[in-house]
Design a protein around this nucleic acid. Sequence first.
DNA 1: TTTATGTGCAACCAATCGGTTTCGCAAATA
DNA 2: TATTTGCGAAACCGATTGGTTGCACATAAA
Lengths: 106, 106
Amino acid sequence: MRRDIFQAIADPTRRAIIALIALQALTPNAIAEHFQTSRQAVSKHLRVLTECELVTQQQHGREIHYSLQLERLQEVDHWLSQYRKLWETRFTQLDQVLSTLKNQKK
Amino acid sequence: MRRDIFQAIADPTRRAIIALIALQALTPNAIAEHFQTSRQAVSKHLRVLTECELVTQQQHGREIHYSLQLERLQEVDHWLSQYRKLWETRFTQLDQVLSTLKNQKK
DNA sequence: TTTATGTGCAACCAATCGGTTTCGCAAATA
DNA sequence: TATTTGCGAAACCGATTGGTTGCACATAAA
């Protein structure tokens, strides 16, 4: 199933998982220890994250290590960038207003 | 109800609404014309967006104009920034690897 | 070999979601 | 005044979500 990354990061638990594995790969059991939910619930979240390619798996014997695919977050960054342009323009305009006011005081 | 902005932008229709009103405020009817859903469905989306303060209303007679609160998107930007740091570091490291290789060729 | 451990998957469940239709109400228009 | 228009709110509905429990199956350890 093709998943939407925005829907994937909508859940707070999934964002917490992302934060956990950002620096080092972890197993589902290791991740589940940080929450009050079952390992299976964490597995379901990992499946959603895997389906939108936000995380990848590395098998080590019977353990599976999940790690974050940082680059995928750039899709969100790209979506944001169109609006970032707008709010930066707005700040620039505010700066201009402020300096105009400053000059009038002189 | 206190809403989560990540949950608000998870829905593709809501992201489309955000894009629509980014440049100019619009009424629910005007927005609904861009989709194949009813005005009431759009109203529900606007309610979600209003609850997390992503949009604000301006009443003009019987018309209500909805406009985007750009600054609120900075909450997403702020969340992203921690990971942006990481992927930029990664790129920097890649650059270093590349220039090391380059120097070795000399 | 037997037992313990790490995992994914399926079935089930209550809650939520995104949509619809119907309604009521205030403002604009005839 | 009577009618039309723009809107929110409520009731309803099927699909999805996030959780659970129970299971099957490898791999590691005894």
